[in-house]
């Protein structure tokens, strides 16, 4: 084995690969919970580690050790596979997004399309998870998730395309590089696209006001109702990775991604930017009530899709390029 192969394996497994991303996922879950709690005048996680920073990890470990119940009527294969996919898909996408330097671990022309594809696959996984548990609440939750996807998939794709058009490349790393070399962040050029992306990310991550597929008071835990033990642990990990993915994508596409500023390594600027994005997500999820599914879908089509199209047209007209 050459040193190079070893380094690549190390990169995939440790930094900036799986281990680092897991750590980041747990860290951002903690940031999210803590910020949300502070907004609501609560403490949030407090006792596990300093200021409860290890709480998400503790939750994860605890769930791993819990009993794993599979409903009798459930489709066992799909029911078991869904959580795995749910955790693996955002992780795969994160290899494409630049984290530690301007270049991501895996990059190829058109990897942006791949990310869009995986995010669509995730919703499919959610639907399958809800469908395979055969619980009424899960079913409704899964259907809602699928329905919700119809709402946000188009605008989020358009919002992703915006920077790509500006950079002239379908590779995320290239978009990042373009921003850094041209010394302008896309967010200043395409604020509408940024806003659309943020809103759709909330919907993608099922955060209030778009936590419709798992609305606690309406359908218990939605598509996740029947999951427990290791499966639930994987679902939670997937959710956290999704948060990292969404913030990383937003950072890469609109905030110029990992950037070497003076002596600060790019990974630090990346973390600062993503942490800021997570904070913004937490703030936004705190100040709204949940929409109803019909209101959400119609609102998306009525307002966000035209806005996203408008942004694309503006870019084509040369504004925001």
């Amino acid at each position: 084995m050459t040193t190079e192969t070893f380094l690549i394996i190390l990169q995939i497994l440790v930094f900036p690969g799986a281990f680092f991303l897991f750590a980041l996922a747990f860290l951002y879950e903690w940031v999210d919970r803590k910020v949300l709690a502070r907004i609501q005048s609560r403490y949030g996680p407090l006792y596990t580690g300093p200021s409860g920073i290890l709480q998400p990890l503790a939750d994860f470990l605890k769930l791993l050790s819990k009993e794993d119940i599979v409903p009798m009527a459930a489709d066992k294969i799909l029911f078991t596979l869904a959580p795995v996919f749910y955790a693996v898909l955002p992780l795969t996408s994160l290899f494409i997004v630049p984290v530690a330097s301007q270049k991501s671990l895996v990059m190829f022309e058109g990897d942006l399309i791949f990310v869009m594809f995986t995010s669509a696959l995730m919703i499919l996984t959610v639907f399958i998870a809800g469908y395979s548990s055969t619980s009424r609440f899960s079913l409704i939750g899964g259907v809602r998730a699928a329905l919700q996807m119809i709402g946000f998939e188009i605008p989020i794709s358009l919002a992703m395309i915006g920077p790509a058009i500006a950079a002239g490349s379908l590779s995320i790393s290239n978009i990042v590089q373009w921003q850094q070399t041209s010394l302008q962040w896309t967010v200043w050029l395409q604020p509408i696209g940024f806003a659309v992306f943020v809103v759709c990310s909330l919907a993608e991550m099922e955060f209030v006001p778009f936590d419709i597929p798992e609305a606690e008071t309406e359908i218990v835990a939605g598509w996740r109702t029947e999951f427990s033990g290791r499966k639930l642990a994987l679902l939670r990990l997937g959710r956290d990775l999704e948060l990292v993915l969404a913030s990383a994508l937003l950072t890469s596409l609109y905030l110029a991604g990992p950037q070497q500023v003076w002596l600060i390594p790019p990974v630090v600027t990346f973390m600062i930017k993503t942490a800021f994005v997570v904070l913004m997500f937490s703030l936004l999820r705190a100040i709204f009530a949940r929409f109803r599914i019909d209101q959400m879908v119609s609102g998306m089509w009525k307002y966000l899709v035209p806005l996203a199209i408008l942004q694309v047209i503006l870019i084509q007209l040369g504004i925001g390029r």
Binding site: V35, A37, R38, I39, Q40, S41, R42, L283, A286, I287
Partner: peptide, 20 residues
């Protein structure tokens, strides 16, 4: 968005919960 101001204020204040 009418709760935004209060939410931002609260973010920088001490929580009211007692560590019972």
């Amino acid at each position: 968005m009418s709760l935004l101001k209060e939410a931002l204020q609260r973010l920088f204040r001490k929580p009211v919960t007692l560590k019972y």
